[in-house]
């Protein structure tokens, strides 16, 4: 009996000791291992030949998967550390906007071959585990202009067997517009999410328009132009993007819907909501009957006194 007990204890201990290392065999990331991102650019079953892509290092990855914002993206430090991939993906447009606005240098750039394939790293000596932002430029092929929304990729990725995969493949989704016509309109609309804190809104915001990542124009959005603007007659073949300058107290996210940019500012400070004040919307009428009645009373009194006065005389 004693031996049996001893054996059980020994087995349990063995399991307990071996368990964490079994987890870490899958869980730990080799942060020194080289990674690659392969991009397959295709639309309507046609491979896109010569499509240009740029890749930015947004955050590096630790052995336990924690993310640390990289140079140029420190603004997103908190966001990147505390959100999952699905949520970070929604911010891809905003992060790209930030990179353009601040002139952050891409980690690497390259073009697809005739099969629509491009594997990073291209020029960079090596690529290590990290969170990368992939952006592309307008690509003209045949009768169409193709472009894909920016997206984030994390390497290594987890494959179906629960193993880390240090060579990731991405299939960006392209949209196309006919290449005919020389001009395009680019619009921007600003949305405020600051209910009960509207008093903190700035009087105006400055928005920059970038052509091929160089600043092209600057406009001010305010209440008088309904916080929106459209640039008309822009070169259809160039790469246009829009970014807003920093607004104190708000976080900005940028979304793109074709050539319509939507910049949403959300109030982020923890101040108490503004007190609602309800106006009094009535004219003041009460003095009228009061004065009239008093006046009438006085007249009556006066007449009476005159009358009685005469009699007394």
């Amino acid at each position: 009996m004693k031996k049996f007990k001893l054996l059980t204890v020994f087995l349990v201990l063995l399991m307990v000791i071996s368990l964490p290392s079994a987890v870490s065999a899958v869980g730990e990331i080799d942060i020194h291992k080289k990674t690659s991102i392969e991009i397959l650019a295709a639309a309507d079953d046609a491979a896109l030949n010569g499509a240009e892509f740029e890749i930015y290092l947004v955050a590096s990855i630790g052995a336990d998967g924690t993310k640390t914002a990289a140079h140029g993206f420190e603004y997103y430090e908190y966001y990147v550390e505390n959100n999952n991939m699905a949520d970070i993906q929604k911010m891809a447009g905003t992060i790209e906007s930030h990179a353009v606005q601040n002139g952050v240098e891409p980690f690497d750039k390259g073009k697809t071959d005739s099969n629509g394939l491009l594997t990073f790293p291209v020029n960079a000596l090596e690529m290590l585990p990290g969170l990368y932002l992939v952006t592309n430029n307008n690509h003209i092929q045949g009768d169409y202009i193709y472009s894909a929304e920016p997206f984030v990729v994390i390497v290594p990725g987890m494959d179906d067997d629960g193993q880390w995969n240090y060579d990731v493949v991405s299939y960006p989704k392209f949209s196309k517009t006919p290449a005919d016509g020389l001009y395009v309109d680019v619009s921007v609309i600003k949305i405020w999410k600051d209910t009960n804190h509207e008093k903190h809104r700035p009087a105006e915001v400055t928005v920059n328009l970038y052509k091929d990542k160089n600043i092209y124009d600057t406009v001010k959005l305010d209440a008088s132009n309904s916080w929106r603007y459209t640039w008309k007659h822009l070169d259809k073949k160039a790469d246009w993007s829009v970014a807003e300058e920093f607004s104190d107290g708000y976080t900005a996210t940028v979304e793109k819907d074709g050539t319509q940019y939507v910049i949403t500012n959300t109030y982020k400070k923890d101040t108490p909501p503004d007190e609602p004040e309800i106006p009094k919307t009535g004219q003041t009428w009460w003095p009228v009957p009061v004065l009239f009645a008093c006046g009438l009373l006085f007249v009556v009194i006066g007449l009476y006194r005159r009358k009685t006065g005469e009699y007394e005389e």
Partner: peptide, 11 residues
Amino acid sequence: IYAGLVMIAAA
């Protein structure tokens, strides 16, 4: 009477 008339006028 005057006071009264003034008040009515004010009204």
